[in-house]
């Protein structure tokens, strides 16, 4: 299997007037093509730092971040749709930024939006959409430039519980159907179990990888996984690892 991302002994230090903070210490993990990998860690353990490193927005203090050269798409906690743009214009935003805003790429993005049920909202402003629909629009925006790897930074944590379960299911299905590689970072154990093929557990700051688990379920969809009794077994294991 082809590797699309690998962290090799990555250390990250932050400097401020108050002193030096070690966010990451010797972090090692990898993501294979087509995989859904989740990284879980306690709050404030440097998860966002990790994704910024993967996306190339930060350079590690020590160690190496290796990528297969593919492009990354970032999805944040909140949808961050621009309220002054219609859904359609929001979806075109990455095309404008990458200067690939042609009729072909626009048609491709619109086809995605249409396929995943945003067709009727294209001319609407984000304020008129529900939280779930907005997050879906954010995903389509990320997918509009056809990235190879999706980086998901707790993309459901701003939603209420009900919406969260269905949006998680939704996003999972879209990512699978579009055959994307995904790296999810979250503090929510059950979310990680419900979507991931493989889970890495991070320690408290300075964060290190404490363990790696292959998660296997007979049925892949998040909501069905949650019903399986394996689910609670995994939850217990991961919960213990997170709290030691």
């Amino acid at each position: 299997m082809k590797e699309v991302l690998r962290f090799e002994n990555v250390c990250m230090h932050y400097h401020s007037k108050q002193g030096e903070t070690v966010a990451l210490e010797n972090v090692n993990f990898f993501v294979n093509e087509g995989e859904f990998v989740a990284i879980i860690g306690p709050s404030g353990c440097g998860k966002t730092t990790l994704l910024s490193l993967a996306a190339g927005l930060l350079t590690p203090t020590k160690g190496r971040v290796l990528t297969a050269g593919g492009s990354f798409g970032y999805m944040l906690q909140k949808d961050e749709l621009f309220p002054w743009r219609t859904i359609e214009k929001n979806i075109f935003l990455p095309l404008e930024i990458k200067r690939t805003n042609t009729s072909e790429t626009r048609a491709r993005a619109l086809a995605l939006a249409e396929k995943y049920g945003l067709g009727q909202f294209l001319k609407n402003y984000p304020s008129s959409l529900s939280g779930g629909m907005r997050q879906r629009a954010a995903l389509i925006r990320t997918l509009s430039v056809n990235p190879d790897v999706l980086l998901l930074d707790e993309p459901f944590s701003a939603l209420d519980y009900q919406t969260r379960l269905s949006v998680c299911d939704d996003v999972y299905k879209i990512i699978r159907e579009e055959k994307k590689t995904a790296l999810l970072i979250t503090h929510d154990i059950s979310e990680a179990i419900s979507v991931a093929d493989r889970i890495f557990v991070l320690s408290r700051r300075p964060a290190r990888v404490v363990s790696e688990h292959d998660i296997l379920f007979p049925e892949a969809e998040p909501l069905k996984r949650r019903e399986n009794k394996e689910f609670s077994r995994w939850f217990e294991i991961l919960w213990k690892e997170l709290n030691t």
Binding site: S52, A55, L57, F72, G73, Y74, L76, Q77, K78, E80, F82, W84, L93, P94, E96, I97, K98, V145, L151
Partner: peptide, 27 residues
């Protein structure tokens, strides 16, 4: 200007000028 929106644009590879025209001025 919302830091997260800046981060989002940076992750798309936006230049400072693009951040200014696409985000800072309209917001």
């Amino acid at each position: 200007t919302d830091e997260n929106k800046i981060l989002l644009l940076k992750s798309m590879g936006a230049s400072k000028l693009q951040i200014l025209t696409k985000l800072v001025i309209p917001s």
